[in-house]
């Protein structure tokens, strides 16, 4: 449980947000050309890092906008928040 600084609304309680999982997983540009292994990689395989991880979050009970977050999963500390489409801050 923590406070999230929504890039559109400012600081709000985490319970207002929902987590969309690992960020920067690009949707395949040509889905018809993917092998089963590549589909499995895209759909299911995750880094699930203990440490600094890039994630997508949605302010579900607020502005309902999606954004990205850099968070340390070993202590839940948020290191950065940035908008969709922006380049992730270099760690």
């Amino acid at each position: 449980m923590f406070i999230i600084n929504c890039p559109y609304c400012g600081e709000r309680d985490q319970t207002e947000f929902s987590c969309g999982g690992e960020a920067h997983i690009e949707r395949p540009k040509q889905p018809t050309e993917l092998s089963d292994d590549q589909w499995a990689e895209y759909l299911f395989m995750r880094k699930n890092i203990k440490g600094v991880q890039f994630e997508r979050w949605n302010h579900a009970h607020g502005c309902r906008k999606w954004f990205n977050m850099v968070r340390d999963t070993s202590n839940d500390k948020i290191q950065a928040v940035y908008k969709m489409g922006e380049k992730p801050p270099v760690k």
Binding site: Q14, G21, T73
Partner: peptide, 13 residues
């Protein structure tokens, strides 16, 4: 909790 975390705590809500 609905997000990845290794903290062995969990949220109050």
């Amino acid at each position: 909790d609905s997000y990845v975390s290794y903290t062995q705590k969990g949220s109050h809500n």
